[in-house]
Design a protein around this nucleic acid. Structure first.
Length: 490
RNA sequence: GGGCCCGUAGCUCAGCCAGGUAGAGCGGCGGGCUUUUAACCCGUAGGUCCCGGGUUCAAAUCCCGGCGGGCCCGCCA
């Protein structure tokens, strides 16, 4: 079917027959990264490097080619006068687009003024059986190919490579920031006998050795809190969470979170930590706190510099949606839910109704600049400590940026009896049909009974933060290998 | 869960409305060319028209069903 692949396979076999290894173990001519060569080029210097052949422009007994190495490009020229006619013809026969070669020669500038390696010696180091999928300098346009074969997307499109450089720099800078604040990075189980820490449907898996059904974690929360019980004061973890829910522009079933817990802190402290973290990381990774983000067809400037606006949930509902829940009866709220075709699985509850209305009427539309939404209804926040001034509310905040929920945080609930009560209420709701109600975690209650210090905790969605920093509106653009239906081809 | 759009050569796409021998550019291969860089010139090969069924003398084209992808809505605090 692919004549080209057959052709190249033939070349590979020909090379092997002639005693030439198309996949040698070492670079016999030496190697300096192209990045270092183009960073400080001196005409006349003899350099050796290697890379993927990204363009071949032949002019009779002379050929120009582009070499790409770790995201950097340099031009080489091979001509029969310098390498000899035999080696020139060998190059033209056996070196194809996409192959890797090792070259040595001196630097010079062409008539057009381009830095170029005048090749004296070369070695084929990888025979590629398939050529690059598109012409060099062009993007792959088919999103399915881009996501399924991300290596091609990375290979062909510098802007895509840049997004992932930002992603992984972001993770590194978060880590650096947290270590700088005295947090210890810990690890907790991904496979758990009871999942918890968020409202979500889990993935179930079978543990053969125990002959039991376990779960993939939906959050990091409950195990990090066990570290606090165990005597660690400041811990954080960066890792994947798994939620068995929809795949869309803001959700991937496996996604990356950073969660942090700090003893003797409350949600006010965590807000300050969060805004400092995000602005510091933005400054380090993209050099600014001002980002441009596409919303409704136009670019909006978002400034991540603190301090961030703070809005109590019920004030936000009043301000942005004209809904004053303090004067509304339960009947009024039920009517509002109906009006907006919202349902509450597990039955009506005033607090969760308020949270739901806020999400629908305020969150996505109105909270573009970084905003802490604070003081959620207690019943919508079963892992948060009740508000010190009014126990109907919880000391909880969510950070919204560009209408997206980026972070979720509490003054952590550490009263084991109240936590147990909340778990029982969640269990009741589960029985009434709320598949996302928190399951009862007996061992976590047991841990709290030994005493967990008062603490503030934070969960930060890394993928969404990277979306903001890179101006991407689909989470698939910031996850290297997003989840797709299993492909049936090949 | 609902809606809209897309699927033709390795890639980007035309052809479909109005059924009649499957096309172009780029890429590949062969030839030419010693300063190009989306090189250029000449030649040439390359197809499960996403899959299955139906209508028809005849289907890439029309109809039905499916698969895959994108976007929007719902749901996911």
């Amino acid at each position: 079917m692919s004549a080209e692949r057959d052709f190249r396979k033939g070349l590979r076999e020909e090379l092997l027959r002639n005693g030439i290894n198309p996949y040698p173990h070492v670079l016999s001519l030496g190697y300096v990264p192209i990045k270092d060569i183009v960073g400080n080029p001196r005409s006349g210097d003899v350099v050796a490097t290697a890379g993927r052949v990204a363009g071949l422009r032949r002019h009779g007994k002379l050929v120009f080619a582009d070499l790409i190495d770790d995201g950097y490009r340099i031009q080489i020229s091979v001509n029969s006068g310098n390498v000899g006619n035999e080696r020139f013809e060998w190059f033209m026969r056996y070196v194809n687009l996409g192959d890797f070669i090792n070259v040595r020669g001196e630097l010079f500038y062409t008539q057009k003024g381009e830095l170029t390696i005048n090749v004296r010696e070369y070695q084929l180091i990888v025979k590629a059986l398939k050529s690059p999928p598109v012409k060099w300098g062009h993007k792959i346009l088919d999103p399915e190919v881009r996501y399924r074969k991300r290596y091609l997307d990375l290979m062909m499109t510098p802007q895509v490579r840049r997004i992932f450089e930002i992603r992984f720099n972001t993770i590194a800078e978060i880590r650096r920031f947290m270590w700088g604040k005295g947090f210890i990075e810990v690890e907790t189980p991904i496979l758990q006998p009871v999942y918890g820490g968020a409202a979500a449907k889990p993935f179930i898996t079978k543990i053969q050795a125990l002959n039991e059904d376990w779960y993939l974690r939906i959050s990091l929360e409950l195990y990090l809190k066990r570290f606090l019980v165990g005597g660690f004061n400041k811990v954080f973890e960066i890792g994947k969470n798994f939620r068995n829910e929809d795949i869309d522009v803001q959700h991937n079933p496996e996604f990356t979170m950073m969660e942090a817990y700090q003893a003797y802190a409350d949600y006010e402290d965590v807000m300050r930590l969060t805004e400092e973290l995000i602005s510091t990381v933005a400054e380090k990774v993209i050099g600014t706190t001002k980002v441009s983000y596409p919303l409704d067809g136009s670019q909006v400037e978002i400034d991540l510099r603190p301090p961030y606006k703070r809005v109590r949930m019920i004030d936000g509902l009043k301000e942005f949606a004209g809904v004053d829940v303090e004067v509304l009866s339960d009947e009024d709220l039920k009517n509002l839910l109906r009006t907006h075709s919202l349902s509450l699985p597990g039955g009506y509850d005033r607090g969760r109704a308020i949270a739901k209305l806020f999400d629908r009427l305020v969150g996505a539309q109105h909270l573009i600049q970084p905003t802490f939404v604070i003081d959620f209804p207690a019943s919508s926040s079963p892992l948060a400590k009740p508000h010190r001034l009014n126990p109907e509310y919880a000391e909880r905040f969510e950070l919204y940026v560009a209408g997206m929920e980026l972070a979720n945080a509490f003054t952590e609930l550490n009263d084991p009896i109240l936590q147990e009560t909340y778990f029982r209420q969640e269990e009741e709701r589960r029985k009434l049909g709320d598949a996302e109600a928190h399951p009862y975690d007996w061992d976590f209650i047991d841990a709290l009974e030994y005493g967990m210090p008062p603490a503030g905790g934070l969960g930060l969605g890394i993928d969404r933060l990277v979306m903001i920093l890179t101006g991407q509106t689909s989470i698939k653009e910031v996850i290297p290998f997003p989840m797709m239906t299993r492909s049936v081809t090949q």
